[in-house]
Design a protein around this nucleic acid. Structure first.
Lengths: 205, 205
DNA sequence: CCTACCGATCGGTAGG
DNA sequence: CCTACCGATCGGTAGG
């Protein structure tokens, strides 16, 4: 790489990085900041600072602040949906399938996807109607797939009720964990997922 | 009242109202706006407009925008805690007590307290550390009282587990309902509360 | 509680 | 991707 032949390597490393994914840097930094301070509490200058740009430069990659929020949000929901479909493709028995879905959901929600999932759950409502409709559509798809997992649990006798309200309550218990989970605390995402399963599933016999 | 003797009654009615609780008007309007658009997405001018004041006037009642947020937040948690303690004072059996607590919680969360509870749940994190500590302390008190209700359920055999995680999961399922509840939808707060009870409690026999 | 206003900051843009 | 900047708007205040 030509970078190596430049006389001032250190300076190049921090200011140039020609082929690095600056767009990805921006959405990761924006996700973290939107999570910490909220969308409206975060300025373009905050985001630019976090990736060592000047305040005008994020607009070279995104046409508006809203577009950054939209990108962060869809990144979150897309990964969650992809993960869910991968787990279901394993074709496990109903109970094992549900447990795996919850573990996967929580691993992302409380782990690498913390910021993206948070923004999707709590900040996407600040998008304008058109963008919000897209996000809502993707969330509905997630719920639809999850719903089929619950239906199988009812069929196998592991769950009493898979109505729309029951589904919302279960997903609520899961998603709410992002509010109180402490990564330095005693329990990890998997342990929480298992507690959730024990709470809503019938006792095994 | 002297108001009645004024020649232009209509004008008086909209501009004077000398002894009305303007402070209460402000926090109600602020609650609704913070719920709709978020704390940072709501301006002092939005709030002032909503109660027919000019932009500088809210500062006659509150020393800062943060103080309005703090007041809205504590109003929410105080009412919820008071309601909870009133239900517990009825001294019902464990299962009936739990059901009554959940119904009361949801009636406020999805009904008259919609805005206050929402702001408490989702916007209070934007307070500065000192104010947030006060709110956190009140929330902890709520959880503590709720925890005792769960302990009795375990003792009576109606619930398998009342660990801290189980408690968080149950409260999460409840609180999350504010995200999806549709007041024009099919089910009312009480029906949702009963579904929650059916989901987490052992079957009666 | 209003009028009039302030300094700071915001999202976004033109031109390079 | 930076420099330099713009119009709009923000939270808050002084004086009445």
């Amino acid at each position: 790489m030509e970078v190596l032949s430049k006389p001032d390597g250190a300076s190049v490393a921090t200011t140039a990085a020609p082929d690095a994914n600056r767009r990805g840097d921006i959405i990761r930094a924006a996700g973290r900041l939107f999570h910490q301070k909220g969308y409206n509490g975060t300025t373009i200058r905050d985001i630019a600072d976090a990736v060592n740009m000047r305040s005008g430069s994020p607009f070279y990659h995104f046409k508006s602040k809203h577009e950054i929020l939209f990108t962060v949000t869809t990144e979150g929901i897309e990964v969650m949906l992809r993960n869910l479909e991968m787990v279901i493709a394993r074709q496990q028995p109903p109970r094992a399938c549900f447990e795996a879905c919850v573990i996967t959901h929580m691993n992302y929600l409380l782990g690498p996807g913390r910021d993206f999932a948070w923004v999707m759950l709590y900040e996407s409502r600040l998008l304008d109607p058109t963008e919000r409709a897209v996000v809502h559509c993707m969330s509905a798809r997630y719920e639809e797939v999850f719903s089929a997992v619950l239906d199988r649990l009812v069929a196998s006798g592991d769950l009493r009720d898979a109505s729309a309200i029951a589904r919302k309550l279960i997903l609520g218990a899961i998603n709410w964990s992002a509010q109180w989970y402490d990564e330095n605390g005693a329990s990890d995402p998997q342990a929480i997922a298992q507690q959730l399963c024990a709470l809503v599933l019938r006792e095994k016999n």
